[in-house]
């Protein structure tokens, strides 16, 4: 296990006068699950957007496997194996669910991989992935346009779309938001399975109870800065964190 699989170093980003990220740094080991928590506006989504290439940082670096990826285009970063989900689900609404998963097969990452999505078996590849994330294979659900699916399925669809990229890292941005408790608990085994499979997970999350079951290490952000880092038990006990979350259930 290398501890410097994904390294974020001194990232800063300002929007106008607002420091969305203020010298944020951390590292993630391969196969680790890292949680990132913090109140709304603390810079979590900006952090995800910088790592995945949607926003260029003012300063700082991101490394993957010792190779600098700062400022690369999003599709290049995805090509290196970092997949993400969005805070609000963003499926390809007018494509049937399973065809959402054929799109990543056209990426350079999969095209260059051996046997990546040949004619004929690509539909099977997509349907297998959907089954893996909990779509009923023999129902009509995988064939429905994404726009017609309920929210819980769309979250799963986004995860499956990440998996279609055969990623090494998946960054989730509030994966559990907008889901009912039963939907969250049915999603948990899937996340555990991904962890067991050795996929590195970086989870920006508001649902702390579920996050603390998955992540062994958590980072707390406040106003663009990292104010605490440690295992969940330590985070819960941390005074600064308690202060930030004053009134919030911890």
């Amino acid at each position: 296990m290398t501890t410097d699989f994904l390294v974020v170093d001194e990232l800063s980003k300002s929007f106008g006068g607002v420091k969305a990220l203020d010298r944020v740094g951390f590292s993630v080991a391969q196969g680790e699950v890292l949680g990132i928590i913090g109140l709304n506006g603390s810079g979590k989504t900006t952090l995800v957007n910088v790592i995945t290439g949607f926003i260029r940082p003012d300063s700082g670096h991101v490394w993957l496997r010792g190779k600098e990826i700062t400022g690369l285009a999003p599709e290049k970063i995805a090509g290196l194996g970092i997949a993400r989900t969005f805070q609000t689900v963003r499926p390809f609404h007018h494509l049937p669910a399973f065809k959402n998963l054929i799109v990543p097969l056209y990426s350079s990452r999969i095209r260059s991989a051996a046997g990546g999505g040949r004619w004929g078996d690509r539909d099977a590849v997509a349907l297998d992935l959907l089954e893996e994330v909990g779509f009923e294979r023999d129902s009509s659900v995988p064939y429905k346009p994404a726009a017609a699916l309920p929210h819980g399925y769309l979250r799963r669809l986004e995860l499956a779309r990440c998996l279609a990229l055969r990623p090494e890292v998946i960054i989730t941005d509030e994966l559990f938001s907008g889901l009912s408790s039963s939907e969250v608990s049915s999603l948990m085994p899937l996340m555990e399975k991904l962890r067991e499979r050795g996929i590195t997970l970086v989870m920006v999350e508001h649902r702390l109870r579920e996050l603390f079951r998955l992540a062994r290490r958590v980072i707390v952000m406040e106003q663009g800065r990292k104010i605490a880092e440690g295992p969940p038990q330590a985070i819960v006990a941390d005074n600064a964190v308690r202060e930030t979350y004053l009134g919030a259930e911890l």
């Binding site: 285009a73 995805a78 997949a83 969005f86 963003r90 390809f92 799109v103 990426s107």
Partner: peptide, 12 residues
């Protein structure tokens, strides 16, 4: 349909 989401799955 969604340029950013497509970029996110490696489409240039």
């Amino acid at each position: 349909q969604d340029e950013q989401a497509a970029m996110m799955v490696g489409i240039d």
